[in-house]
Design a protein around this nucleic acid. Structure first.
Lengths: 138, 138
DNA sequence: GCAATCAGGTACCTTGGGGTGACAAAGCGT
DNA sequence: ACGCTTTGTCACCCCAAGGTACCTGATTGC
């Protein structure tokens, strides 16, 4: 009997979790890799609470829709808080939670590592693309 | 040399890089968060070189198409190597590169952190979903 | 000739992310 | 009354990820 198809043969984060929990982890981490999540959370983590339009200015070229969606997702996962302030024109402050700041702290090293290794990725791609181009010259 | 005029107001990984390089980092890291990339790379990193069909068995429920695509992307970014062996039936071995193993080493802590915090995410979502449900009784 | 194995490739479909632009409620200045 | 700002929502679009299913090409064995 070899190769039972289940259980924890190794300590893969992936194969140790149920599909459901695995998906949840992926969804949370996906924000740190998608186009806006990390950026928005970083702004909030570094420069205190910010209102919607400040974020719109600071996160360059983000659309209103995407900023709204990003904030909703971050809020849903407990990474940022949303506070409405009844004011002259209505005002909404967003702030990073401790959980959000902790996530940033754990994500930054990974990004820094990736930035350090950028030349490796660039050259790996150049080599790969050149090799596949010579094999498929059309 | 590279005309990447990166304004660095703060040490955001995001706002320090040119769009192009930012996108490259995101693409590499995205594999570690998408459905199969981390899993495939982990298998290769832990259990030596593996051939296509072994991976197909070990990465449960992955489709041929997705495995092929995942491996191509990992290979393109220099994270795995592909070696054809002229044999009885043709044979192809995939193995993690040092760069790939290094990436795994840097990604694992993040996943472990996320798994530790899973209860926080679950409860944050429960609270958020309950609150929005009461406001929008569909 | 015919089936089987291994390593893919290709077509088709559904989902979801993200962009644009128009519109909405709330209060203020004029 | 009218328009301004702020904080969104909604409708419409395109594109890419991923799944299913089927096809290819090389080779061995019958």
């Amino acid at each position: 009997m070899d190769g039972a198809s289940d259980g924890d043969r190794h300590d893969d984060p992936c194969s140790v979790l149920s599909d459901e929990r695995q998906a949840l982890v992926r969804e949370v981490l996906a924000r740190m890799v998608d186009k806006w999540g990390l950026w928005v959370l970083s702004e909030l983590s570094e420069d205190g609470p910010l209102r919607f339009s400040r974020l719109l200015e600071r996160v360059d070229r983000i659309s209103q829709k995407s900023l709204t969606a990003t904030l909703r997702q971050l809020e849903r996962d407990g990474l940022v808080t949303r506070t409405m302030v009844a004011q002259v024109p209505i005002r909404v402050d967003y702030a990073a939670t401790p959980l959000g700041r902790s996530l940033i702290d754990h994500v930054h090293p990974l990004w820094l590592w990736a930035i350090e290794r950028l030349p490796d990725f660039v050259s790996a791609r150049a080599i790969y693309d050149a090799r596949t181009a010579e094999q498929q010259p059309s």
